[in-house]
């Protein structure tokens, strides 16, 4: 069964307060996974990359996702040299995921490997793996304790890929809001078990969902960060399944 913890994708992070009293790490993760999520989501975001010298590069991107972000299209609206570039991702349960890039200058939809998950997405601190869903049953979970993050009482949940599951991270430590069962802080450790990325998420309530308003991803080893600020967010708009086709990569929606 395909399940996700709904964390850390660009469009994503959606949960409902179910009030489940979770005893084990797995139960917390399962409760997060089972939270009702929007059928689809449309958003426009400003993505700001900042390097260690403080130099910034800003992009505006539009995203439409569905099926718990297993299907997603992202269009770059700016800067001018990236305008029109678009990315399509379709996660499959029974075969390799599909990832395609539309490069207007080449007039080609280029299929890219879904195995190169560690590659940076458009120079950001998010990798392709960060943009795909985490499968609930591919990890083991352990509660490491409790802590307040920005005044929110959180479980500290450790997720480790099971043996045989290839991931670019050795483990995650996620601070999960006890009341809303949403991740507010997530730390990703590299294969040497060194902290690689730190992710902070902020939410607002809309239509009963906890929807992201801001995601901040910091690569602590490179001293580089990416901030995503959601300027518009619509959910359950009835996105049709055939939107996630190559032809729509070439067509920036209004």
């Amino acid at each position: 069964m395909k399940m996700t913890t709904k964390t850390l994708t660009i469009g994503l992070l959606i949960t409902l307060p179910l009030g489940i009293f979770a005893q084990t790490g797995y139960e917390i993760a399962k409760a997060m996974d089972e939270k009702k999520s929007p059928a689809d989501m449309k958003s426009e975001m400003t993505m700001t990359l900042t390097n260690k010298q403080g130099k910034t590069r800003e992009s505006i991107i539009r995203s439409i996702s569905a099926d718990d972000s297993r299907k997603q299209i992202i269009w770059f609206l700016s800067p001018a040299d990236d305008k029109g570039v678009a990315f399509l991702k379709i996660e499959h349960a029974d075969k390799d995921d599909e990832m395609r890039l539309w490069l207007p200058a080449f007039k080609k939809v280029r299929r890219i490997s879904s195995k190169k998950k560690a590659d940076s997405f458009m120079g950001s601190d998010m990798s392709y793996e960060d943009m795909t869903s985490r499968e609930l049953d591919e990890y083991t979970y352990e509660i490491l304790g409790e802590k307040k993050v920005d005044g929110i009482d959180c479980h500290i949940l450790e997720s480790t890929p099971k043996e045989g599951v290839t991931r670019t991270y050795k483990r995650f430590v996620t601070y999960v809001s006890k009341s809303d069962l949403i991740p507010v802080l997530d730390e990703a450790y590299d294969t040497r078990d060194q902290l690689l990325k730190r992710r902070e998420m902020k939410y607002s309530k809309q239509k009963g969902y906890d929807l992201p308003t801001e995601i901040f991803v910091e690569n602590v080893q490179k001293d580089h960060n990416t901030r995503l600020i959601f300027s518009s967010l619509e959910v359950d708009t009835g996105v049709e399944a055939d939107l996630f086709q190559e032809k729509n990569l070439k067509r920036i929606p209004k």
Partner: peptide, 8 residues
């Protein structure tokens, strides 16, 4: 064009 799991 046929999109397979392993490629196109």
């Amino acid at each position: 064009q046929y999109a397979m799991g392993i490629g196109d």
